[in-house]
Every structure is written in structure tokens, then in C-alpha cells.
């Protein structure tokens, strides 16, 4: 016996897809038809059993990853839109053009830099291959001048890269610091400003890493401690907790405690900071 009733209506009862009158109509039919009743019952059992299939929770780092993605996305759109629109709004086209020139990467810098290195290399070669004589003093002096010029050049390049609207150029700028042998106040200040103010979380993380190399410098240490309360991104906060622990910086305890008072602090960061405080004190 085959019931000719439209059986596609039966599943509609399961997930409540019917209006009251429609449902009634189907129920009336099912009450009188054993075949359809059987099918409906089987469907119902299956449907209930499906509910018992568990759905795993998303892993714990999901939110952090999402926020990092959102930050990066926001900063990348900021970088492409804001400088030009801002400049257009406030200043005339002449200044806009100049600003653009300032912010775009200039290959001239790179060429000048490599030329300078070649000259420095030739100078060094001359100095080494030449037999020691009365001129040595003068050569050393020249070399010292050249060396300072090179390092000034690097510094200038780093600073101009740090102003670049593209995050990857700024990261390049930060990585230049590893080539500058002696860091002066200007470099440290530029790095600390980037650490506290850069819109992109990745740039801030790289800057933090670069700064850790100069942790022997008391200004750097002080700057890092002060930066704890300025950071909003959980990634940077967590990285700072690690750095402070590595440096055994006891001055960090107070800002960390203040950080813990923030209500919306990320739970993972909270754990990390608490662990850091415990190990520092």
C-alpha cells in the first residue's frame, strides 16, 4: 500500500516551518495514515538524535586572532585612504604633492646608501693595504667621519621609513635599527614613539622586539615600562609581559597591577600578567 500524500511536507513539522493551519492539515492526515505516521516517527527520532551530535567550541585563541585581523585590516585601509584625504582637506595641492613625495619610498636613498658603502669599502681597503706611515692618523680620522656618516644615513633612512603609510615599510624601518651599532637618543625616541603610537599591531610587536635588544639602556627600559599602560592590543600586552619577565624588570610590577584593574582586559593577558607579577615579586 502506497500513500500518495506529499511526503515532502512531513519534514516541515520537524523544524517548525509551517503555519498553524498548514501544520494542522498535515497532522490530520498523519493521524489517519499509518504509513506517513511511521515515516514521521522515524524522522522525529532521527531529528532528535541529530541534536545529540556535539558541535565543538571554537578554540580559545579565535577572538584574539579575529581582533588582530580586524586591527590589521583597519590600519591597512587607514593607510590607503587617510593621508591623501586629510591633506586634501587641510592644505593646497602643492603641499599635498610635497607630502606625497615625502611619504613615498625614494629609491634615491637606497642608491646613495649603497654608493656610500662602496666608497667606505674602498676607503677601508686603502687604509688596510697601505703601509703604516705618517698619514695613518689622517686616514683613521677620515674613516671615522665616513663611519659616522654611514650610521647617520641609516638613522635617517630608518626614521623616514617609520613615517611611511605602508605597515611593511615601517617594519623594514624598524629592522634597520639592528644595523645601527650605537643607538642614540633620536633612534630610541623614534622607536618608542612607534611602539606607543603605531596603528598596526604587527609593527608595534616588531618594534618591541627591536627595543629589547637595547634593554641595557636605562631610557629604553623606562620607556618599555611606561608603554605597558599605553597598549590596548592584547598581543602587545602579552608580549610586554614576556619581555618584562625576561628582563626581570621589577619596576613593571606597578603598571601591571594597574593593568589588571582594567575590566575589559583580555582573559589570557590577565593570566599572563598575573604570572609575570608573581615571578617578578
Amino acid at each position: 500500500m502506497e500513500c500518495a500524500y506529499d511526503k515532502t511536507l512531513l519534514p516541515l513539522l520537524l523544524n517548525d516551518q509551517l503555519s498553524d493551519s498548514e501544520r494542522e492539515a498535515v497532522e490530520v492526515h498523519v493521524a489517519g495514515c499509518a504509513e506517513c505516521r511511521q515515516e514521521l516517527e522515524a524522522n522525529k527520532r532521527l531529528w532528535a538524535l541529530m541534536g545529540a551530535i556535539d558541535t565543538p567550541e571554537p578554540p580559545s585563541g579565535t577572538l584574539i586572532r579575529f581582533n588582530a585581523m580586524l586591527d590589521t585590516y583597519k590600519s591597512s585601509t587607514d593607510a590607503t585612504y587617510s593621508p591623501s584625504t586629510e591633506a586634501q582637506g587641510k592644505k593646497g595641492p602643492g603641499i599635498l604633492e610635497r607630502l606625497r613625495q615625502l611619504f613615498t619610498f625614494q629609491p634615491g636613498f637606497a642608491i646613495a646608501y649603497s654608493l656610500l658603502l662602496v666608497i667606505a669599502g674602498i676607503g677601508l681597503d686603502h687604509w688596510i693595504s697601505r703601509p703604516a706611515n705618517a698619514d695613518t692618523g689622517k686616514d683613521t680620522q677620515q674613516l671615522a667621519v665616513l663611519a659616522t656618516q654611514v650610521s647617520e644615513m641609516r638613522e635617517m633612512m630608518m626614521k623616514s621609513l617609520l613615517q611611511n603609510p605602508s605597515a611593511s615599510e615601517r617594519i623594514r624601518g624598524v629592522s634597520y635599527t639592528s644595523e645601527i651599532a650605537t643607538v642614540n637618543k633620536g633612534v630610541v625616541e623614534a622607536l618608542l614613539t612607534t611602539l606607543n603610537n603605531d596603528p598596526n599591531v604587527n609593527v608595534r610587536l616588531i618594534t618591541l622586539e627591536a627595543l629589547t635588544h637595547y634593554a641595557g639602556n636605562p631610557v629604553v627600559r623606562e620607556g618599555l615600562v611606561q608603554s605597558i599602560l599605553q597598549q590596548e592590543s592584547p598581543l602587545v600586552q602579552a608580549a610586554l609581559a614576556d619581555v618584562m619577565l625576561k628582563l626581570q624588570e621589577k619596576n613593571a610590577i606597578r603598571p601591571f597591577k594597574k593593568l589588571l584593574q582594567q575590566k575589559d582586559l583580555n582573559i589570557l593577558v590577565r593570566d599572563k600578567v598575573q604570572a609575570a607579577i608573581a615571578r617578578l615579586s
Binding site: T55, P56, E57, P58, P59, T62, L63, R65, F66, M69
Partner: peptide, 26 residues
């Protein structure tokens, strides 16, 4: 993100890939 993760997981049966896809969808 929870229901979406559930959908991705049931469709692929792969937790890590589902998380990647979750970020990708957003």
C-alpha cells in the same frame, strides 16, 4: 562566530581548518 564555527565544522569535520575558515569568512 559560534554557530558559524559549528557550520564549518559539520561541513568539513576539521577543527583547525574550520577556525582558519572562520577567520576567512569574517
Amino acid at each position: 562566530h559560534r554557530p558559524l564555527y559549528g557550520f564549518l565544522f559539520h561541513m568539513t569535520q576539521h577543527r583547525e581548518a574550520s577556525e582558519d575558515m572562520l577567520q576567512n569568512v569574517f
